[in-house]
Design a protein around this nucleic acid. Structure first.
Lengths: 251, 251
DNA sequence: CGTTGGCTTGAGTCAGATCAATAGACGTGG
DNA sequence: CCACGTCTATTGATCTGACTCAAGCCAACG
């Protein structure tokens, strides 16, 4: 799956210089110097679908997602689970400056991570301030996402939640590399691949599987979307979907 | 309300050196040098209860809360509102490295902020890496809080939400300066001051005013808490309340 | 006093949960 | 190839926790 460089070091499957996700990740803003340092403390790790990457309460991980989808979830003692974030290719996964992770990270699809040594990474943050800034940028972006989701979980109806989910997913799949353009490029008829199961959607949206399924059907019946199967959706009416998502503001 | 220094500069009501909240805030970890620089770009600002401090979409603010309570909220076009965080004395309020705020900040009580000039603050972050690290620490703490709240909003019942709110508030009021001790110091009989209205609790917990009121009554009737009035609560059974909050884990 | 704003309480409704059945996709082994 | 079990998704029937609508209480205040 991963793009191998002919010159790659055995434990570093590709040089960071020509990494497929570099421009979209943390590494995009680094100097060659800093990148080299980062490269030397990184190694690729693979995870099978469903495999746990870090458990809540265990030491935090620092890694870029190279390929695949990762979710982070928090759970209650009786088994109820809430997915708190989804990570796509290029996202930085890591609770910098926290000793232990506050949530469990799990691979949803086959995942390749570019993982960094924790201590070495923190030391590198001291040497290269730009790295700290990048990590801060990511943290702020995640915070903004978390807050948007709090609004969704606290105030939106089931149908608004499902519509919002589809729109966000579309924005994420449309931007593909440049997250600042986004939204505009969601054109009608766009095919959308839902990378998670209905159960995971439910855990992400604070609903049950049945309600997710029913609302998906309702969106189909009202002509906003069409689907080939449960995972392959086509957006028929983007404006309508945006309206169904509840907020008419920016993306 | 604020502790005035005899040596204070007209626009800087107290020297940062002897600021009442220094040890609990961002400033606690700074060198005298960095603190001096920060001091020179700060000034105190006052807000009346209900007054808006920043509006969603406007340029972000950088400030420490000196006294009072601030809430941040996000809203939908039809008026539904979700409070996404509460700031107490010593908390750092600011979306570093983001141009515009993603939420509206509002004073709940009379508030004094120690506000920093935005550009100067960002420049200072370049000069003093420790400042960036402190901001990152705050961002990670806020992210963890946001995630815990996502679990609450997505999975917990009304009664669990109210109980969790009371426990978190108690932890926050008990630690008073050192957030790492916390929780342990919540002793039975502890008096708790609820600094926000029922309507704000509802907006924070993703419930209606009526449900908040009913669940508060239910907690009283089951003997977990007692109250003098709507804002003055006494914790009678801390373990019971913890159980009612749904998660038996740390704090 | 009358008004106003915040809080509580009651009665009825409804959106989403729960319980239950079915269908399709996919493997596995006889 | 078909019978079988498993896993995921959909759909139906019913239930219930929280919302809605409405009334009443109390303290603050002009």
């Amino acid at each position: 799956m991963s793009i191998q460089s002919a010159f790659s070091h055995p434990h570093r499957p590709m040089t960071c210089q020509r990494c497929a996700i570099r421009s979209r990740s943390l590494c995009g803003s680094l100097s060659d110097d800093a990148l080299g340092a980062l490269s030397s403390i990184s190694r690729h790790r693979h995870f099978a679908p469903g495999q746990i990457i870090v458990t809540e309460g265990e030491p935090a991980i620092f890694a870029n997602v190279v390929t695949g989808i990762v979710v982070e979830k928090k759970s209650l003692s009786d088994g109820r689970e809430q997915i708190v974030s989804m990570f796509f290719s290029g996202d930085f996964l890591g609770d910098a400056r926290r000793v232990n992770s506050d949530s469990t990270a799990q691979a949803v699809s086959p995942v390749t991570l570019c993982a960094f040594d924790r201590n070495a990474f923190e030391q590198l943050m001291d040497v290269y301030p730009v790295l700290t800034q990048s990590v801060l940028d990511y943290a702020m972006a995640r915070l903004e996402n978390a807050r948007e989701w709090m609004l969704l979980l606290g105030q939106k109806s089931a149908e608004e939640r499902v519509a919002t989910f589809l729109m966000r997913l579309a924005a994420r799949q449309a931007d593909a590399g440049c997250r600042h353009v986004a939204a505009q490029s969601i054109e009608p008829g766009m095919a959308l691949d839902i990378p998670i199961s209905r159960a995971q959607m439910a855990a992400y949206l604070g609903l049950t599987i049945e309600t997710v399924s029913r609302r998906m059907t309702a969106l189909r019946d009202s002509g906003l979307v069409a689907f080939k199967d449960a995972r392959a959706v086509r957006l028929l009416n983007v404006d309508g979907l945006k309206a169904a998502a509840g907020d008419n503001d920016r993306l």
